[in-house]
Design a protein around this nucleic acid. Sequence first.
DNA 1: TATGAATGAGAGTTCATTCAT
DNA 2: GATGAATGAACTCTCATTCAT
Lengths: 190, 190, 190, 190
Amino acid sequence: MPETTGVRQQQARRTRAAVLAAAAAVFVDQGVQAPVRDIAERAGVGVGTVYRHFPTRADLVTAVYRHQIDTCAALAPRLLEESASPYSALTCWVDAFVEFLVTKHGLGAALGAGDPGLENLHALMLDTLVPACASLLEACVAADEVGPDLTAYTLMRAIGNLCITGPDYDRSDARNMVATLLVGCRRAAA
Amino acid sequence: MPETTGVRQQQARRTRAAVLAAAAAVFVDQGVQAPVRDIAERAGVGVGTVYRHFPTRADLVTAVYRHQIDTCAALAPRLLEESASPYSALTCWVDAFVEFLVTKHGLGAALGAGDPGLENLHALMLDTLVPACASLLEACVAADEVGPDLTAYTLMRAIGNLCITGPDYDRSDARNMVATLLVGCRRAAA
Amino acid sequence: MPETTGVRQQQARRTRAAVLAAAAAVFVDQGVQAPVRDIAERAGVGVGTVYRHFPTRADLVTAVYRHQIDTCAALAPRLLEESASPYSALTCWVDAFVEFLVTKHGLGAALGAGDPGLENLHALMLDTLVPACASLLEACVAADEVGPDLTAYTLMRAIGNLCITGPDYDRSDARNMVATLLVGCRRAAA
Amino acid sequence: MPETTGVRQQQARRTRAAVLAAAAAVFVDQGVQAPVRDIAERAGVGVGTVYRHFPTRADLVTAVYRHQIDTCAALAPRLLEESASPYSALTCWVDAFVEFLVTKHGLGAALGAGDPGLENLHALMLDTLVPACASLLEACVAADEVGPDLTAYTLMRAIGNLCITGPDYDRSDARNMVATLLVGCRRAAA
DNA sequence: TATGAATGAGAGTTCATTCAT
DNA sequence: GATGAATGAACTCTCATTCAT
């Protein structure tokens, strides 16, 4: 007699949520390479529990960022409708993507470095964000605001890389450089 | 009266060169964080030998890249003289900088991540490449080809980040994105 | 609601005890500077387990000797009550202290040499044994059995040093020399 | 045609002397366990040279202290003649022995710990100092100033141990404790 | 399910010792 | 004889991962 959500399941879900929250916090502090133990401690659970819910580090990283990724992706069609031009929509969307990235200490670096074990997250971004970005990019191309030779994936990788911040290159620098990159993408008005 | 370059010194120099070559190769394969042991093995020497020649990892990384860095820096004044415009000189120089970077697996990532223990290399680049880049940038600003709000350091960091390559974002992508960034920097002709 | 002493805790405690026993044994054989790996092997555990229970070598050394130190310290007040004279109490207590020391191969030497990383143990002895010794010494001074110019700490260091045994200077020699030292401390009866 | 002392031999002797002097200095600073390289550097020679002259560390330690040991031993008969009583001669001689020891950072500890590889020095002291001390002790026993149950070797080991100094137990403490020990050895006047 | 004790591979680093020149 | 570059064993410590309870 499987209850839809037994007490056990509820507890498990709560534990899972606690781990996710802890991981998110620790990732901000120490980056996505933080020791598993630190995450477990922050969540108030044993390391085994972390592994039960997220067998690989990538699973954890992916889960932590999935919600934000989905939100970011969902933004694209809305912006396309509401904005004055496709390019303006792209600009707004990229701003949101950058906001997502610059608060993720080390994520960009890990992705950029092709960190093995982050393929899942990579795949998630491919599946979710790339299409979102591509829809905007295609609209720009259709409107002749951006040249046709740029793939959404490459653009996102470039943006992701530009968002790798450090002591002497902060979020504001990252935002400026991404904005500059977009300006460079813009087709010179005929 | 020790000869200026005895057989021993020559041998030591050869060993040093072997370690450097091995380090360069290992850095390409595994990145600048590769275990010292791997470098020693590749060079066919004991770990102690690596430590003798390069007490810290930063010493090794710095030595591996110093020559190329110097060459790159020396390029700037020549380009400024020979090129049709400052912006064109900047473009050429950045191409050379990108060539340097894209062949250095993991270097950009390590620098971008603010890797402790790479301060030496960071400092070397600051001391050597930033002035070179700055001279070109200033000329561009003076010629009103580039806006005045961009520092050479920030530009180089951005370029460095864009050169972090991976399986799906290769050197060619990096080159394109850097070129696009430079286009974005270019002041719209009045 | 975790039981006060679950099976796991019991097992951990047993492991801890095994490590302590192994450490004690290895210390006797090789001295307190013995490699951590040797202790782990002797205990039949991994090195990580040793580090889990005793993060620093000093923690281990201290734990190994804490019980005996406490017992020794607790002896002082009782002896003071039961003995015919303070000096006699001091003699008995020093006998106990010597017994503690002569069975600790290398401990005296390590303490004597001011081994860094043994500050904890040093502090423990200072906090625990020195007051115990001082109480006896003060009683002796009050009874005019010992001169006032000797501190408990110095006396204990001297005793500790005299208990550094070796092939040709055994426990019995150490006991004799300590006894002789105490005789030398005794004030000549008026 | 072997010259008595060719240029080569002279040079070798000078080198040997330089190593000895350097070793003595380094031993004072860092103790007898100091790295061989430090000694070689201080002497301005290569490590190989140190090994050539002193194949084992014990050889070096022994050589460093041989002269002082001989001087100390030679003191005994003179003191016996000049002093008012055998016990007084013993006291003076022990003072000299203590002076020798307290300036030898770590020597006492190394000897006390039965450091393997210091057997040579141990043997040297046995052969040289023990007889010297024994002659004084025997005279004391003959004069009924000291009991017959103490061997010179044991006394010297005890004194050696008492001279292991540290941050909180300095040379002055060592001297006091040795003096106290000697008082304890003195036979109560009949 | 949750736990966290236990494991052990792996990385950094030091330094005694050898040996070709 | 002198040199010092080279070697590699030995040691410390960290942390991902497993598994018995």
